[in-house]
Design a protein around this nucleic acid. Structure first.
Lengths: 281, 281
DNA sequence: CTCATAATTTTCGTTTTTGAAAATATATTG
DNA sequence: CAATATATTTTCAAAAACGAAAATTATGAG
């Protein structure tokens, strides 16, 4: 047969008889392990599927799916719910997701306040951070924004609005939080000059020093500050007085601070001198 | 009070009495609309939450949450499931997600075949496409890969493996499928020379011409071909003979074709002459 | 062909979730 | 303060999902 140009891989013939494929490691007969793998993948892709859906998809009984799901969830591959299955949030992501849920209300309010200050048709930088992600959520109903971000989550959130122009900076993906960092990111940012830079921060010292843990992220934030007409800092009150290693700059360099509780008086003093506007929920 | 440096925004005082915030448009009293908005956002963030979880989160009865969810799902904001609520897949994403589910099995098998040919510690380009996304899924258990991609979904998928180095090309996000396109992307790719370029395609003409619909995506694919030591094309059989507008190149330029059905004889002939290896599931 | 084995479907009683309505709490207004 | 309106909790019967075991089907071996 002249069909194949390949001589080592398995079934190249269109009518190859059912050769048992060594696909899944699972020793189960037939296409059971196959279906398990597929369920796993569908769950990964869709986030959540009902047993009903899966049963229809595979043309089997809900009971069979139920059994599959039990096996898979026991092995930790997916998570079982009443009526369906969802992603088993990996340990790593749990940390980040939990962090997102913590102070959720505060962050949402801070974010709403920031969003209120952003006019339609504006251009923005948005950097890494749970609070800036909340800002992205809050901006979703604006019109025709142009956003440049180094945060994969922000990009995903905002790209769901058809009218936004979302630009992602290139760079290495940080596993922890989907942030993009590195020289490429900074070079990329340097190409733009936008209306608003929206940044988060890991800590603000009482003398007004802005601090972060990752120097690479600091360099990104630095580039954002330098290339934005206005810089908005969004942070919850837990960051006041909190220490981190890397110095990013001084609070007097930003235009407005959005937070959920009034900062300590010493900070307010510095902000007054630096003409930093304060927004408190 | 010396606390505030801001004079226009709402409650700046830490003890401001409950001023009714014009937050949500919903005319409901109190913090009900507030909770609705929060539920919406939690669902967006986590993908799926049980009623139990939400009830604990807000300190209310499951019944209350149930009512909330009913309202929200009726308005289309979220989707109701037994025991919880999940994201209401937006129309746009439905199209894309459905497309992902269609031919799921075929794509998964093609992807598994590709993954088998990729050694650990390899460096890769992966471009846009449902099939290449499946490849990303299939690669998740490899060790220490270095991946450069212009596909946000691929980046998200692969970054969940702690041992991978995932690099995203910068560029404009295409709403339809989370692809990154544009000059910046191409410049970015030019900086690298990798072991394997894994690409998808919209159509392959019977004379061996590779075709796509978006010329910007074609330029990205072109850059990938030019900067990869080996080029693997992953595509399902529906693409054979399918026409698209933009010419990407010729099938003889790739090293291996991975698909689920033997291509038409004319194509096979061309592939043989071009020494293209053929892998069929 | 018959038997053995594994996968799946059926069946059915049990548990969980649900929705409607009544009761309670909370806030607003006159 | 009483009256009213709204939000929430309680209560309870119906519906849905569940798990275990028996019955059925499919596959491979002797």
């Amino acid at each position: 047969m002249a069909l194949s140009t390949n001589d080592r891989q398995a079934g190249v013939m269109p009518f190859s008889p059912e050769t048992p494929q060594p696909e899944e490691a699972s020793g189960d007969r037939m296409n059971l392990g196959d279906r398990h793998a597929q369920i796993k993948q569908i769950v990964q892709t869709k986030g959540f599927v009902t047993i009903e859906q899966l049963a229809r998809e595979f043309g089997v009984t809900p009971q069979t799916i139920r059994r599959d799901i039990n096996v898979l969830s026991k092995s930790g591959a997916i998570q079982r719910f009443h009526g369906g299955a969802g992603i088993a949030s990996s340990t790593e992501n749990v940390a980040y997701n939990e962090r997102k849920i913590i102070c959720f209300q505060e962050k949402r309010k801070i974010a709403a306040m920031v969003a209120e200050q952003i006019p339609d048709h504006a251009s923005l930088f948005i950097n890494i951070g749970t609070t800036t992600e909340a800002v992205a959520q809050a901006l979703i109903h604006h019109k025709r924004l142009r956003i440049i971000t180094n945060n994969l989550n922000v990009a995903t959130i905002l790209s769901s609005n058809e009218n936004f122009e979302v630009i992602v900076t290139g760079g290495l993906v940080r596993h922890r939080d989907g942030g993009l960092i590195g020289e490429a990111t900074i070079d990329f940012i340097q190409q733009f000059k936008v209306d608003f830079g929206i940044i988060g921060i890991s800590g603000i010292d009482l003398d007004g020093t802005l601090l972060d843990f990752d120097y690479r992220e600091v360099r990104v934030a630095r580039a954002i500050i330098d290339n934005s007409r206005k810089v908005y800092l969004a942070t919850d009150h837990t960051k006041f007085g909190r220490n981190a290693m890397v110095r990013l700059g001084n609070i007097s360099e930003i235009d407005s601070l959005f937070t959920d509780q009034a900062p300590p008086p010493s900070l307010v003093e510095i902000m007054n001198q630096g003409e930093v506007r304060l927004f408190v929920t």
